[in-house]
């Protein structure tokens, strides 16, 4: 009881989120500095996916709206950043925040339509969105350059950075560019989940009518949740594009499904779950490869073995513990 009442009085919320964020950043920095370049790049991918998985956590885990189309909002973020950077020569530190606004607007439009839908109807709609949005790139060839896509990257570190910390590898620089954005995303998500808004969204998830009776305007709150989740997805998509290319093939339907998979694997209701799920999804193929190297397999078998093992693990995890890896100890919400 004491625990609950202290989290309701909120000066500690910001402090708690800040503490989590600082620990997270230190953890990533230490981990990143011990890694080989390949794994540094993988760690950057983990951070990028983490932001997008947080959007699934907020949308599906907290506000209860299932989405199979967060990849489309990532595409919106990615294309906005790429267009701003190639056409207006903006630096990525301006282009990425600006493109988040674009993703937020797209999310608001989708949210208005989505607030009326529930369960599988919402799932179907978002799935078609994930399929349809990237094809716009082929429709307006002159702007989006079709399948070829727009190439952007994180560039090189500025002079003051190399002077202060020495010359980082390209992979390490990718990681350092992504890290501050991931930290901000984590801080906001943590605040949100602990705050009154977070509780309000959970009440909608658990029972719309009951929430309405306690004075929550659930249609409006569902749209807000969609906008916030879209901003996270847009940010992630912008950073994902900065790995080198923004094109339809970078944001396929499978990407959206991977995000949902990561969220459910780790535990869809918590930030820790989002991170654990993301680490599993990104590194599992590498780990399986490592194990399979010890066996002599024909090419046909070894091509598909990682996919088979990870699919079977996915089924097992879901059947044994549907609440996800981090979900078991989750009682309060």
């Amino acid at each position: 009881m004491r625990d609950v009442s202290s989290s309701l009085k909120n000066p500690s919320i910001i402090r708690r989120s800040l503490r989590r964020t600082i620990l997270f950043v230190l953890f990533i920095l230490v981990l990143g500095s011990t890694f080989e370049p390949y794994n540094q790049a993988q760690l950057a991918v983990v951070l990028i996916y983490f932001i997008a998985v947080l959007s699934v956590t907020i949308l599906t885990g907290i506000s209860g709206q299932i989405s199979l189309g967060q990849g489309a909002l990532m595409a919106v973020g990615g294309y906005s950043t790429a267009l701003l950077m190639t056409n207006y020569q903006l630096s990525l530190w301006l282009a990425v925040p600006a493109s988040i606004v674009g993703a937020g607007i797209a999310g608001a439009l989708l949210g208005i339509a989505a607030a009326r839908l529930s369960g599988p109807y919402l799932a179907g709609t978002t799935l078609v969105i994930a399929l349809a949005i990237p094809t716009i790139a082929n429709r307006f060839m002159s702007v989006f350059k079709g399948d070829e896509g727009l190439s952007v990257d994180v560039g090189y570190p500025p002079a003051w950075f190399t002077k202060a910390f020495g010359e980082p590898t390209y992979e390490a620089w990718q990681l350092y560019v992504v890290l501050p954005f991931a930290a901000i995303a984590l801080f906001f998500a943590s605040n949100l989940l602990l705050s009154r808004t977070g509780r309000m969204w959970r009440s909608i998830r658990d029972h719309e009518t009951a929430a309405a009776l306690t004075g929550v305007n659930f249609s409006r709150q569902k749209i807000y949740a969609f906008i916030v989740a879209s901003i996270f997805a847009g940010l992630s998509g912008a950073l994902y594009g900065l790995r080198g290319l923004v094109g339809p093939s970078v944001y396929p339907v499978a990407l959206s499904l991977t995000l949902l998979t990561a969220a459910v694997l780790g535990g869809i209701r918590s930030i820790a779950g989002a991170f654990i799920g993301t680490v599993i999804v990104v590194f599992l193929p590498d780990w399986i490869d490592l194990v399979l190297k010890n066996f002599k397999l024909s090419e046909q078998v070894s091509n598909f073995m990682p996919a088979l093992i990870s699919s079977l693990l996915l089924i097992l995890t879901v059947v044994i513990n549907p609440a996800g890896v981090a979900g078991a100890r989750h009682r309060k919400h």
């Binding site: 599906t60 209860g64 299932i66 529930s118 658990d206 949902l260 998979t261």
Partner: peptide, 15 residues
């Protein structure tokens, strides 16, 4: 909750 009842089997079927 309804959304989870829909989401978890979806993940299993994706697997």
């Amino acid at each position: 909750s309804e959304s989870m009842r829909a989401a978890v089997p979806v993940i299993a079927s994706l697997g």
